[in-house]
């Protein structure tokens, strides 16, 4: 199945730079052309909608907060279908992120809805090892989906 990995965040703000850092690592890994598209989603918010209208599988990589305890693994895998139902995400602002994007998508999609959406989340501070694991996990999910990666 065709897949797209979209890395979200602001590389100039350390607390939000996990996604772009994973993006940089994925570029180094040279993903197979034609199988997985890699996108630097930056802070584009709603402007990413056209990337979600091409069917296939979409994997977001983003910083997360509040998902893990201090001593737990700081890498999490979330189901996009669940995120889109969180009511707190239904307000739009300039920084509208994945939640709003996923919630509004079914109503505005002009193309083919993704068959599966996942979020690879990185909680808190990170090091090269965590970034490496996040990069590998995002490729794994892009290839095999949520069920095949858990």
């Amino acid at each position: 199945m065709k897949a797209t990995i979209i890395c979200i965040g602001n590389r100039f703000v350390p607390a939000d730079a996990a996604g772009p850092t994973v993006y940089d690592r994925l570029r180094e890994l040279a993903l197979p052309t034609g199988e997985i598209d890699l996108v630097d989603g930056g802070l584009q918010g709603l402007n990413l909608l056209p990337l979600l209208e091409r069917g296939g599988r979409v994997v977001f990589v983003d910083a997360v907060s509040g998902f893990v305890d201090n001593d737990a693994d700081r890498l999490v895998l979330l189901d996009g279908a669940e995120i889109s139902t969180w009511p707190e995400q239904h307000r739009f602002d300039h920084g509208a992120g994945i939640g709003y994007l996923l919630a509004v998508l079914p109503q505005v999609c002009d193309g083919e809805m993704p068959r599966e959406i996942a979020v690879v989340g990185i909680e808190g501070t990170y090091d090269a090892q965590l970034i490496e694991r996040a990069a590998r996990l995002s490729i794994e999910v892009a290839r095999h989906g949520l069920q095949g990666s858990r």
């Binding site: 602001n10 100039f12 918010g45 997360v64 907060s65 998902f67 707190e88 995400q89 709003y100």
Partner: peptide, 23 residues
């Protein structure tokens, strides 16, 4: 419109919520 900065997916565990400290 100040500074695009932290777009951090947050969870309140059970309730789960997106907090956008957008700058």
């Amino acid at each position: 419109c100040l500074v695009c900065a932290v777009h951090c997916l947050q969870s309140g565990r059970r309730t789960g919520r997106m907090k956008i400290d957008s700058n």
